[in-house]
């Protein structure tokens, strides 16, 4: 089947979603990222792999963390970086996405890092750009956030190297979460035998089990004996209404407290893609505990993004 992310020889052309990428490509990115973890600890935090290349971060949707880590990653690879927050400039003037992209192509950009609030936006751009330009999806609607999925499995692999022997639970708003979709594909592709999703029915996509996950509505049952708990952010606009009655009730039923976490394995790790809503999906006592690996996720995010960009630019094995 046609795969828009791969060249004919199977090498990575764009990074648009985890789904559709073979295990060996995921491992290549993870292994390359390992070699970049050390770069940040050096005095000179730079490698010359993208020297002379121009990376354009186009954010059609607000982001602080993702945009910053992409920027740092590109700079550590010695690229020239342009940041564009389009939601505050031309899009509000009604310019079509592809017109914005065409202008940036005309400025000889080598790589686009794109975030957009519509599912499929990165695919649209990837289909449109000339052959010598790569597109990295930094989040499209509810669809995909591949570098987040990769940095999450990278983090898991660092703490729990035996991936083929893990039980992982994703908790919260699966329906609207591109992070959840990317994590699910990354985990199943890498051979994690049991991936669980824990959420009320209103926050689960239809036929989610076809993605290869076990569905739980009861958090106590879902957390039983898991090795990894991945919490998801609950967006403000979904905290009350027809999806959920209130944040209090959500916290009571699906918030991760030390009591609920005690049902998982004693050495279970807790993850969160950030930004966290303390007291909504996660209790501060858990977020700040020794089991939480939330800040290492951010650190590893830079290494993963460096690896993805280096591989796309052809500068890493």
């Amino acid at each position: 089947m046609y795969n828009p992310q791969l060249n004919n020889d199977g090498t990575l052309k764009h990074l648009l979603s985890i789904e559709g990428l073979p295990k060996k490509t995921l491992l290549q990115i993870l292994d390359t990222a390992e070699s970049f973890v050390g770069v940040a600890e050096r005095d000179v935090k730079k490698v010359p792999l993208l020297r002379g290349k121009t990376v354009c971060n186009i954010f059609f949707e607000n982001s602080t963390r993702t945009r910053t880590t992409f920027e740092i990653a590109a700079k550590r690879l010695s690229a020239d970086v342009i940041n564009l927050n389009v939601n505050t400039s031309s899009q509000s003037k009604g310019e079509a996405i592809l017109d914005t992209i065409n202008n940036l192509i005309a400025m000889h950009t080598d790589m686009f890092v794109v975030r957009h609030n519509q599912s499929g936006a990165a695919h649209l751009i990837a289909q449109h750009v000339p052959d010598n330009i790569s597109v990295v999806n930094a989040g499209d609607g509810r669809h995909s956030h591949p570098t987040q999925g990769l940095l999450d499995v990278f983090t898991i692999r660092r703490y729990k190297p035996e991936m083929h022997n893990l039980r992982v639970a994703l908790v919260g708003d699966i329906l609207h979460s591109r992070v959840a979709r990317s994590e699910i594909h990354a985990l199943t592709t890498l051979g994690v035998p049991e991936v669980r999703v824990i959420a009320p029915k209103t926050l689960l996509p239809n036929e989610v089990e076809k993605l290869g996950v076990h569905v739980f509505h009861d958090m106590e049952a879902g957390l039983k004996d898991v090795d990894v708990v991945m919490m998801l952010r609950l967006q403000n606009e979904r905290m009350s209404g027809a999806m959920l009655p209130s944040t209090q009730e959500f916290f009571k039923t699906y918030g991760l407290t030390p009591e609920k976490l005690s049902l998982a394995k004693p050495d279970a790790i807790v993850m969160h893609p950030g930004p966290m809503n303390r007291g909504v999906e996660i209790d501060s006592r858990v977020a700040d505990s020794s089991q939480a690996v939330i800040l290492p996720q951010v650190t590893y995010g830079i290494a993963i993004r460096m690896a993805a960009m280096a591989i796309l630019a052809g500068g890493a094995a």
Partner: peptide
């Protein structure tokens, strides 16, 4: 259904 859920499209 399955496809909308995978692609993150509202069903």
């Amino acid at each position: 259904g399955e496809v909308a859920s995978r692609l993150g499209l509202k069903g």
